[in-house]
Every structure is written in structure tokens, then in C-alpha cells.
């Protein structure tokens, strides 16, 4: 089973992601506190990390940078899931070599289909 870590400071949004993706065959670990996310990522070694951008103490951009610049973690796919849908955030995501950018509000159906495509899973 493919593993996904979702990092967001809004527990309701984590709940939506976890419910939708778990029901469709993914092993999802929700992380509410971004400061502990990198430890969880190292421990679980997921196939994909879903990241909010605006979080307290550490931004999604910082986390993405840590993942993509670490030789052991760099192959993990990173997808931003954010309400901060602006040109400069999309550009920054590109610069950090993120694998996707999904603006909030998102449709769980669309999120699932995007992740299936990215991880090569057929429905």
C-alpha cells in the first residue's frame, strides 16, 4: 500500500484528506504540527507528502526545501495544497521542484485523481 503524509494545521482539512485517500487504498498519516513533520517523514518514508504552505513556525516551502535537498528524501513526491494560490507561490513551488500544486478549495475527487495519476495508481 502506498504511503502518504498530509501536513496541515487545520484538522478538518486533514480529516477530509485522510478519509478520502484511505477509502481509496492509501495509507495516510496526518500531521497537524508542521514542526514534527520532517521526523515523521524520515520515519515513515512515504511515497508522497501533501503540504499546506501557511503554517505556524515553519512554512510548507521550508519543509519542501528540506525534503528536496536531502539525498535520502529527495525522491519523495511533494504536492502543495494551499489557499495561497498566487503567481509567486506557484513560481516558488516550481523553483523548489514540487511535483504538484493544488489550490484550496479543492474537490476530494479531483485530489484523489491527481494523486492516482502522480503515483501511477489505476482506479
Amino acid at each position: 500500500m502506498q504511503k502518504i503524509i498530509a501536513v496541515d494545521d487545520h484538522s478538518e482539512i486533514l480529516n477530509i484528506i485522510t478519509t478520502k485517500l484511505s477509502r481509496n487504498g492509501y495509507d495516510v498519516t496526518p500531521v497537524n504540527d508542521a514542526t514534527t513533520a520532517i521526523e515523521t517523514i524520515r520515519r515513515i518514508m512515504p511515497d508522497l507528502v501533501l503540504l499546506d504552505i501557511m503554517m505556524p513556525k515553519i512554512t510548507g516551502f521550508d519543509l519542501c526545501d528540506q525534503i528536496k535537498s536531502d539525498p535520502q528524501l529527495k525522491d519523495i513526491k511533494v504536492v502543495f495544497l494551499t489557499a495561497k494560490d498566487m503567481d509567486f507561490t506557484r513560481k516558488k513551488a516550481d523553483e523548489l521542484k514540487a511535483d504538484g500544486f493544488i489550490p484550496k478549495p479543492f474537490s476530494p475527487k479531483e485530489l484523489l485523481s491527481f494523486i492516482n495519476d502522480l503515483l501511477g495508481k489505476t482506479e
Partner: peptide, 21 residues
Amino acid sequence: EISLSHELRTPLTCILAYSEM
């Protein structure tokens, strides 16, 4: 603009996603 975008979109994400589910 930035706070409008963020503060309005976050609660709407919950309404939209939960109603779809």
C-alpha cells in the same frame, strides 16, 4: 488580498469537500 484569499478559501474548503463526500 492575501488574507482574503486565505481566510475565505480555508473554510470554503471544508464546506465544499464535506458536501462532496
